Amino acid sequence: MPRTSETTAELASVVVENVHKDFKLRHTHSIKETVVAAVRRKPLTTDFHALDGVSFTINEGEAVALLGFNGSGKSTTLKMISGVLTPDRGTVRTRGRVAGLIEVGAGFHPDLSGRENIYLNAAILGMSKKETEERFEEIVAFSEIEQFIDTEVKHYSSGMFLRLAFSVAIHTEVDVLLIDEILSVGDEPFQKKCLARIRELHEAGKTLVVVSHDLDMVSTLCQRGILLSGGKIAFDGDSKQAVAQMRA
């Protein structure tokens, strides 16, 4: 099994061991281009090594930033931890309930209302119907979209998607919270509100794994930074040092 769930009372919340992940990049986008490339004996695909032997352990209660430029492998790593992707080689182990804010509106059905999608998304994140009912009013209040809660979400803006998705995720009984650039969407007051809530979760002992290009934010929110480059770990240590290396 490439990805397993850890149930023992170890301190580690996330263990990534020698993980490799490759993707095939297509060079043709139509039948005509494929035929022409084949006649000219040009390669139709190229292997892209997104992760090349990545290993690290994140302990319970840590706040860790995954850093790197586009194509470095940070979002792929986060998707491995969430279970959206599985490694080609190596293992990923997690302990406790993992909730991911990886894509705005992921898990939402466009033809359902915000109210219905709260129950749907909460169920995907592992909440029972009873848990969702108990927290429903709090979820809606935090999202600040009460007047649109019975509107189909296909009419929502990206900011409204964010508010609802974030609100559901942070009201889940989560042990590990994964965040990928989602705080870049939405207005500044709501971003500050989200950051305050994330800090509360961290202070309560939750494990945070954050991907963001906002280097100032991650250097204050996270104590540790893992800098990826070309699918390999280039630095693993203090977040401010990781940010300094990236900027250099």
Rank of each mutant, 00 (worst) to 15 (best):
M1K: 12
P2W: 13
R3S: 13
E6A: 12
E6C: 14
E6I: 12
A9G: 14
E10I: 11
L11Y: 08
N18F: 00
D22Q: 13
L25I: 15
H27M: 10
S30K: 04
K42N: 13
P43F: 03
T46I: 01
H49E: 09
T57P: 01
I58W: 01
E60D: 13
A65P: 06
L67R: 01
F69C: 09
N70R: 05
G73C: 06
K74H: 01
K74T: 07
K74N: 05
K79A: 02
M80F: 07
I81L: 05
G83T: 07
G83M: 06
P87S: 08
T91M: 12
G96M: 08
G96P: 04
R97Y: 06
E103M: 09
V104Y: 10
A106G: 02
F108K: 09
L112T: 05
I118Y: 03
I118S: 01
Y119N: 06
Y119D: 04
A123V: 07
I124N: 08
L125V: 00
G126M: 05
K130L: 12
E133K: 13
E137P: 02
F142M: 08
S143Y: 02
E144R: 02
E146Y: 08
F148W: 08
T151E: 13
E152K: 14
S157E: 10
M160E: 05
L164S: 05
S167T: 05
V168S: 02
A169S: 09
H171C: 04
H171Q: 10
V174K: 06
D175L: 03
I179W: 03
D180H: 08
D180V: 07
E181R: 04
I182Q: 06
I182T: 14
L183V: 11
D187E: 08
D187N: 11
E188W: 06
P189V: 05
K192F: 13
K193A: 02
A196T: 13
A196C: 08
H202P: 03
L208D: 05
L208C: 06
L208A: 08
H213C: 09
V218S: 10
Q223K: 14
S229K: 15
S229N: 14
K232A: 11
I233W: 04
F235Y: 15
F235M: 04
G237P: 02
D238W: 02
K240Y: 03
K240P: 00
A248S: 15
A248H: 14
A248M: 12
